[in-house]
Amino acid sequence: MNFFRLVADLMHLASIFILLLKIQKTRSCAGISFKTQLLYAIVFVTRYLDLFTTWISLYNTIMKIFFIASSVYILYLMKYKFRATYDPILDTFRIEFLLAGSLVLALIFNYDFVPMEILWSFSIFLESVAILPQLFMLSRTGEAETITTHYIFALGGYRALYLCNWLWRYIFDGHVDVYAWVAGIVQTALYSDFFYIYYTKVLHGKKFELP
């Protein structure tokens, strides 16, 4: 564990609490893409299957259980409790392509051709593009609630810090994980426009609006 990874994980954790706060405070999931949330639930379930096979640490186990449980809980909130506030008309990104593309990539690029490893690769590739429906929704509405932008920022920042973590681990431990690196770079790059607007608008006290 190094500084970057710890802060990244805490940021990831924070993003989920911010999302829960947004939904509970405004009693609405308006502006949140159900499809992105669904993809994250799939990402966590397929990646953390090793909960049953490999013990890493108590920290690791608790975080994994939290990520799976919270993602399923958010799906429940969006699908049932606050269903009336969700606007499917704005959430029209075709996730079939993301799922199929990630699966194909996982079948080609994996550390071992066994179901667990293929699903791990699948989750890494799917995570890298899982934010697309959310960003697409944002581009359609052209604006967002400030708390929603904090959520997206924390979610994007977490993987950006993982890039620092991977550089750190490579330098000091010789740790190499090419698939996670490439996916992490793609994931962070997808946020670049968002980061720019977040920095120039939200952090200067203005509303998040697309130019």
């Binding site: 990874r5 990646r47 890493i56 690791n60 550390y111 071992d112 993982y162 994980d177």
Partner: peptide
């Protein structure tokens, strides 16, 4: 294979 990585990250 011997290129298996232990996935110790989240």
């Amino acid at each position: 294979g011997d290129c298996i990585i232990i996935h110790d990250e989240l």
